[in-house]
Simulated assay, not measured.
Amino acid sequence: MTAAPIQTLTRRRVLPVGENGSLWKARPSCGVFEFRGRRLRLTVEDPAEVLFPTDCGLSLIAALSGDRAPDLKGVNALDIGAGSGLYSVALLAAGAERVTALDINPAFAAQTAANVVANGLDASRLTCVTSPLEEYTPDEMFDLVITNPPHLPHDPSYAREDGLETALVARRGGRAVYDSVVEQMDTLLAPGGTLLMAHSSLADIPRTVAELTARGYEGDTLEIFEMDIPLLAYAEHKDTMLGLLKEQRATGRAEFDGARFTVHALMFRRPAERR
């Protein structure tokens, strides 16, 4: 079965130029956000170990506060690339029955759990798993999968072995985790389930949409955000990174204007099994 094309939006929420973290009340290691009627707080003890969420990740939270967002009450959810626990905290606060937080960075688990507890949420409903996505073999399928994959292209000149690297940079032109999500989704997401994704325009959105649509998933764009490319952490290598992105743009694999790009809050539904 071939699903209908994803809805195309033309309007976008434009975040102020040069104001890194403009969706946050405060940065870079502590922030407050509101989600579905609850005021939540996120803290990162060491931003070099576990990245404090950027606007790219927070944009999906903002989109999920809209009228077209799915019901989160009672779901069994998987948070891929959980980091400091932004999505895990939000899902539990919105009434998710259980959340499994998955990340390749071993430092994430303690930080995610601490943020769940600090917000007065039931930590027994959270499970943290340290593993590459490709090696993760759960005992069950999930009602909902949520993710904000790393989206900046890798280059040896600025490669580093820390939490910042795993959160922002990926091989295959920034597509490595996107590709893994698509490849693993039929194993992870239950029939009738929902995939929520913050998808950067720097990492070939049309490819992801086409591949999931070919699998029968029905796609929808909840909202589009325009913001600065997160280059502050790579200021010394800005020219190299922008050069790689320009190469990808020339071949149709990235879209951006100067130092501005867009993040699409995407929702895909897996078809229910036929009886």
Rank of each mutant, 00 (worst) to 15 (best):
Val44Thr: 08
Gln248Leu: 15
Glu226Ile: 06
Arg275Lys: 14
Val17Gln: 08
Ile229His: 08
His264Arg: 09
Gly252Tyr: 14
Arg12Asn: 01
Gly173Thr: 12
Leu102Glu: 02
Leu78Trp: 04
Ala113Met: 12
Ala93Leu: 15
Pro156Ile: 10
Glu247Phe: 02
Cys128Gln: 05
Val129Ile: 13
Leu196His: 00
Phe225Ser: 04
Leu51Asn: 03
Asp143Lys: 07
Thr127Cys: 08
Trp24Lys: 00
Ala167Phe: 05
Ala48Arg: 05
Val99Leu: 15
Leu64Ile: 04
Ile229Gly: 05
Ala69Asn: 08
Pro156Leu: 12
Leu133Asn: 09
Gly83Lys: 00
Pro47Asn: 09
Ala259Asp: 09
Met197Ser: 12
Gly163Phe: 10
Pro150Ser: 06
Asp204Met: 09
Phe52Ser: 00
Ser180Gly: 05
Pro206Leu: 15
Ser180His: 04
Leu212Ile: 07
Ile61Glu: 06
Ala109Lys: 02
Ser157Leu: 14
Asp257Met: 11
Ala107Met: 01
Ala190Val: 09
Glu218Val: 11
Thr213Ile: 00
Arg68Cys: 13
Glu183Gln: 14
Tyr136Gln: 02
Leu91Glu: 13
Gln111Asn: 10
Arg249Cys: 01
Val181Leu: 13
Leu78Pro: 03
Leu232Thr: 05
Pro132His: 13
Ala259Met: 05
Pro53Gly: 04
Val209Gly: 03
Gly18Ser: 10
Met197Thr: 03
Glu134Val: 12
Ser180Phe: 01
Arg41Lys: 13
Arg38Trp: 11
Ala203Pro: 06
Glu273Met: 10
Leu231Val: 02
Leu231Gln: 01
Arg98Asp: 06
Asp155Ser: 09
Ser88Gly: 03
Met185Ala: 00
Gly85Thr: 10
Ser131Tyr: 07
Asp257Tyr: 14
Leu102Pro: 06
Arg125Met: 04
Pro106Asn: 04
Ser22Ile: 15
Glu255Ile: 01
Leu188Cys: 09
Glu135Leu: 15
Gly18Ile: 07
Ile6Pro: 03
Gly216Asp: 10
Gln7Gly: 11
Glu211Arg: 12
Trp24Phe: 13
Pro138Gly: 10
Ala114Tyr: 11
Arg172Thr: 02
Leu266Lys: 02
Asp162Ala: 04
Asp55Lys: 12
Glu135Arg: 13
Thr221Val: 11
Val209Tyr: 01
Ala250Asn: 01
